[in-house]
Nucleic acid binder design. Structure first.
Lengths: 276, 276
DNA sequence: AGCCGACTTTCATTGGTTGGAATAGTATTG
DNA sequence: CAATACTATTCCAACCAATGAAAGTCGGCT
């Protein structure tokens, strides 16, 4: 009678191969399956992308739908819900700065009629918080809610320059990402650029894809003097001399900073370099 | 020896008075504690508002922070995170329509220099998706991400008029909410108004609080011909005759609809009434 | 009809979840 | 400076919500 309990042939209901991930994490991973390209997904797609069995996904999704984090379309597919958007609109670094900055972005937009961008840093990337564009503007690489690299975009450089030293070093140590359309700078040049950005309050990047454009960005400070966002303008290369754009961008960024409670201590450096 | 196990005096660790709410719901209720007035909360505040013990809240919050749904400030308080905002930006009815509508909102804004609003319906309320305002505009009642009643706002009436019959009846049966600053319409008048809105594609509301304003709203249709959003303009009462605003608002709303794939079948009714 | 895929319900098992208690840290008060 | 009051965090044994294979249901396609 040395017959072990035959687990092979006795399927035994409720015998899971062990998973052991917190439920909350699973629920969140179901939210994370949505992306720019995947805005409406079926149950099985969500389960597959999130890496869990369909019944489990269904149960969790049911909770999310009940709360409003997800919504179910007529065809049975799921999309991100308005309720989630509503809560998210309370994000200080998301809609928060946006709300304060928007009027100034509009002014800048109205004067220039070119793309106006607002971005914050999240982890090792810039997240686009707002973008004003006219219907007939140049093609631009990033959408609101999307992410952009720190080293190869104007807003990214501004945010990187404003981050704490330790973080900057960590980023600089990493190998460049080689984004298409942007000449990748060697580490030394990046360092010099960041220093320039801090000194002048302006970052500038030329890119050739998806179209030939010039971006000019400037930092937005909060009351404590830390860089909380980057404001930029993107124009077709050759349309307007960047040194004409810089003062306008910087002025807008300063106006936003002032509204955030930043008391602009005009450093002599900035004064010397204002205007090219 | 009829002494029962004295549960009273033997506290016995791990003996909870039973709760039994799904974990996901609890996690979501921790997100729901944030509001316009409460954008940064401490652990104990969140636990209190969400109605759960501090250790439980802490554990869940830790997961939410790890994922990025919440962020922790230097002072230990929690705020809604950028990651959540990022996912929420994929909400078709949230940022989705917004993204398509924004250029047209901007045009309208630029011409009029008054508040331009975009709202969708969620449940029994309108949710403000976008608001363009100049720095020196009139005070306005609602903020982006906020909710407004259906019966007493211009966007609300448009959304209500575009909802299915069954839903409209349910709303009409409910007693009026008596919002301050807006004359409350009796049921019959609401019905007539809704019918007018459907016919003319325009809703108009005067309100006296927080300032004397006139709102003019028009529906945005999707490819299937259902009302997915309402576009409106809010001007100080007396500044511009509403019948001048109506065509502009309707034109903008139509432009957005067209962009959403709506093939405007110009109904005879609308033609008769276009322009006052 | 028969097959296939996606969706949903069921249910015995169990491990993630739970919250009181204890501890540590911080601000306020007498 | 001790005492008080509060918040934040760690610990852990009990236990119930979560789990996922299996089976049933629905709809589409051949």
């Amino acid at each position: 009678m040395t017959v072990q309990p035959d687990t092979e042939t006795t399927p035994a209901r409720g015998k899971r191969p062990k998973q052991g991930e917190p439920v909350v994490d699973r629920a969140l991973s179901l939210l994370a399956v949505f992306s720019d390209r995947r805005r409406a997904l079926t149950l099985s797609e969500m389960a597959r992308y999130a890496g869990m069995p369909a019944p489990t996904a269904l149960r969790l999704i049911a909770r999310l739908v009940a709360w409003g984090a997800l919504e179910r379309l007529d065809d049975g597919r799921y999309v991100v819900g308005v309720r989630l958007w509503e809560v998210a609109s309370l994000s200080p670094r998301g809609h928060g700065v946006r709300e304060i900055a928007l009027p100034y972005l509009e002014d800048l937009f109205e004067v220039t009629r070119h793309h106006v961008l607002l971005a914050v840093r999240d982890n090792e990337q810039a997240v686009l918080i707002e973008r004003l564009s006219s219907k007939d503007a140049t093609e631009v690489a990033y959408r609101v809610g999307g992410r952009a690299p720190l080293r190869s975009t104007a807003v990214g450089l501004v945010l990187l320059a404003g981050a704490d030293q330790q973080f900057q070093e960590a980023i600089l140590r990493k190998p460049p990402e080689n984004e298409p359309g942007v000449p990748d700078m060697p580490e030394g040049q990046v360092r010099r650029t960041l220093s320039d950005v801090r000194r002048t309050g302006i970052a500038m990047i030329r890119r050739s894809l998806p179209s030939r454009t010039v971006s000019v960005a400037s930092p937005v400070f909060d009351a404590q003097g830390s860089v909380v966002a980057a404001l930029s303008i993107v124009v077709p290369d050759g349309s307007t001399p960047p040194n004409v754009l810089a003062p306008a961008v910087r002025a807008a960024a300063r106006a936003v900073s002032r509204n955030l409670g930043h008391h602009a201590e005009v450093s002599p450096d900035v004064r010397t370099h204002s205007q090219g």
